[in-house]
Simulated assay, not measured.
Amino acid sequence: MWKQAIEDAVQKTRANIERFGSQFPHVSENGHYLLNDNDEWTDGFWSGILWLCYEYTGDEVFKAAAERTVDSFRKRMDAKVKLDHHDIGFLYSLSSKAQWIIERDEKAKELTLQAADVLLARWRPKGQYIQAWGPEGDPQNGGRIIIDCMLNLPLLYWAYEQTGDAKYKEVAILHADKSRRFLVRGDDSSYHTFYFDPETGGAIRGGTHQGYQDGSTWTRGQAWGIYGFALSYHYTKNPLYLETSKRLARFFIERLPEDNVVYWDFDVPVNADTKRDSSGSAIAAAGILELLTHLEANDPDRAFLEDGLQRSMKGLVEGYATIGQPDAEGLLEHGSYSVRVDLSPDDYMIWGDYYYLEALVRLEKGIKGYWYER
């Protein structure tokens, strides 16, 4: 099943190279990806898909296309085009860091270290967190963290490994600890976002930006947490991060619907019109795959997590993948960007496509993503 799904994804990606040209896919509208000139937070995912296809096939077509994206990211860094947010890890881990991991290209390594410095500049020492959005002192976002940032922290951990400069790892750990304390609730659910006093770091309140309501559990946020804390465990071996990833994963799996692909929020009232988020299920599956690599064979949670992984991936492949639709641009249907504001609530999501393919190639060939050195 996995091999057929990968071959389908590879064929579509090959066609998309010509369709997209030098532009980058974001989300879809009327069945077609909306393209941009590398100025979205999501543009690293296209690069990551190309690198995964190259590693799986060895086809130079994918390598050449992936290298062109890295050239684009170099230009984006030089011009500082919309790098004023925390999603630098999504952008550069899957583009230039991927090139470094695969090809050992020194220029790609240098570019990735530049990106780590851009992310590090969002550290707010007074509050002791990485600010998600907006400039320092922003009245709305100056004290805000969001759970998505757990997938950006690997860029800082990696920079520490490459340079030996402890500041990168120290900031990543402090932010992960704060995220664990304030974003993860006692019942193993999660807040999407949390607000602090930017001067003192004092806790104000939890909330949401894309979930159903402030106290609900946005499914994609829960998935970010599963994968992000597993990766923080990989880099630090702090058992609290492993425990947190397991807790978040169990909560996620226990609430899978009948077809095993999640709705956009675990607390939203479900009816015939309730939107799914296939991208949330794809991220969670990739995260559980990482989590499983850190568990002992006799871990009491292993069988439950493995079953949840298989159910999730089977649900995606059989019910949401565009297999059998040769002209489809996306790999997964029924992803949701932001249902709250009716922004691509039922469309292709390039990040969903990336994590879906990452999980598939890891299951089939053991090819990991680009979050750490292999």
Rank of each mutant, 00 (worst) to 15 (best):
F73V: 10
Y129W: 11
H175D: 01
V61I: 07
S93W: 12
L363C: 03
P125A: 15
S232Y: 03
E364C: 07
Y157I: 13
F196W: 14
L83K: 12
L256Q: 09
A121C: 05
G221W: 13
R250G: 08
L363Q: 06
Y195V: 15
K178W: 12
S232G: 03
Y354R: 09
A272H: 13
K82Q: 00
M349S: 00
D105R: 07
A286P: 12
D342L: 01
G137F: 12
E254L: 10
F304M: 14
E7M: 09
T322H: 00
R185Y: 10
L52F: 08
F196N: 06
K167P: 03
L183G: 15
N152V: 12
G280K: 12
P269H: 14
V118M: 00
Y157S: 13
P135I: 10
G369F: 04
N141Q: 07
A64S: 15
L153Q: 05
E29H: 11
V339W: 11
Y54C: 08
E364T: 13
G142Q: 02
W41L: 05
Y227K: 01
F20R: 03
G143L: 15
A116M: 12
S28I: 01
V262G: 02
P25T: 08
Y227Q: 01
L35D: 00
E258Y: 06
S281M: 11
N38S: 05
A64Q: 09
T163I: 02
D117F: 06
Y348K: 04
N298V: 10
L113S: 06
S338R: 10
K97D: 05
P300I: 08
G352L: 02
D327P: 06
I253F: 00
K126Q: 14
L305Y: 15
Y168E: 00
